[in-house]
């Protein structure tokens, strides 16, 4: 099992954050370098690999034909899943998903879903009977912190390059036939995830694994921008701590600027 962070390094980090410093020279709200490649798996309907510093995730999209949910007969289905592979970290183990493995895909699902980036209404084959089910599957390759934010970027890039496969005359999916049908996306809404972490009185973004382990809490926001308006589409606080009004306002202030700066880095990929 991986070592847990010592109290000594936790205290050191707390002191450094208080002075606005980090081991790798970033300021508290800076992201690491983002490196992206798309179409990393040719059987997938869309895919992407995202590197955020040393953190690396692969996200793939598959489409299948399914039945609509009874409460949304005129919409396609969306399912996000993640498998925290023992490949990616000494902390991950095979077996039934523990809470982090349950939470990650739920957070990615919610920020995608509520941003309306996917036009689920256009994923209907026959209303009430047959619709496309969109599977977004996240696999971490190397976990050095910030997995949620990296996974959200991966999902976004994979979606932007995705296609809808062809159906044969019997209504079965022909995955081998080359399709050029573009996946129905709402071009006005581009969601990303911003996870703030709190240690002592300091709030940071994009932690390394070591920083993440030292922190007491995480607050993840799904953010999109519609026209000139920033939207929070999802939010979840993780951790047994209290947040003050001031701290919440601090995050609200940081959100627009951070959104724009990450979007600047993603522009050439989407």
């Amino acid at each position: 099992m991986a070592m847990e962070i010592t109290n000594l390094s936790k205290d050191n980090l707390k002191k450094m954050f208080k002075e606005g410093k980090r081991f790798d020279g970033r300021s508290l709200l800076d992201f690491r370098e983002i490196e992206i490649s798309s179409n990393v798996s040719n059987k997938a309907e869309g895919s992407a690999r995202v590197k955020l510093g040393k953190t690396e995730v692969v996200v793939g999209i598959k489409l299948g034909v399914g039945e609509p949910y009874p409460d949304s007969p005129d919409k396609g289905n969306l399912t996000v899943s993640a498998d925290l592979l023992p490949l990616a970290s000494p902390r991950f183990e095979l077996g039934p998903p523990d809470f982090p493995a349950i939470e990650l895909p739920r957070l990615v699902d919610r920020l995608i879903r509520h941003s309306d980036i996917i036009d689920l209404g256009k994923l209907v084959i026959k209303e009430g009977e047959k619709v496309w089910t969109v599977y977004i599957d996240v696999y971490p390759i190397n976990d050095d912190g910030g997995l949620i934010d990296a996974s959200a970027i991966g999902a976004l890039v994979a979606l932007r390059g995705a296609i809808i496969p062809e159906l044969d005359e019997n209504g079965k999916v022909d995955y081998d036939k080359k399709s050029k049908k573009k996946f129905p996306l709402n071009e006005d809404s581009i969601p990303i995830s911003l996870s703030f972490f709190k240690l002592g009185d300091s709030i940071i973004l994009d932690p390394t694994r070591e920083e993440e382990e030292a922190c007491d809490a995480r607050i993840t926001y799904g953010i999109s921008k519609v026209g000139k308006e920033y939207m929070i589409n999802s939010c979840q606080k993780n951790g047994e701590i209290i947040l003050t009004t001031e701290e919440i306002n601090h995050m609200m202030k940081a959100i627009p600027e951070k959104y724009d700066s990450i979007m600047g880095k993603l522009k050439k990929y989407i």
Binding site: M231, N233, S234, C235, I242, L243, T245, M252, K253, I255
Partner: peptide, 15 residues
């Protein structure tokens, strides 16, 4: 004025 649960789904402007 200290908060212990924040969980949101939907659309809300930061301001």
């Amino acid at each position: 004025d200290e908060y212990t649960l924040l969980q949101l789904d939907g659309k809300i402007q930061p301001n």
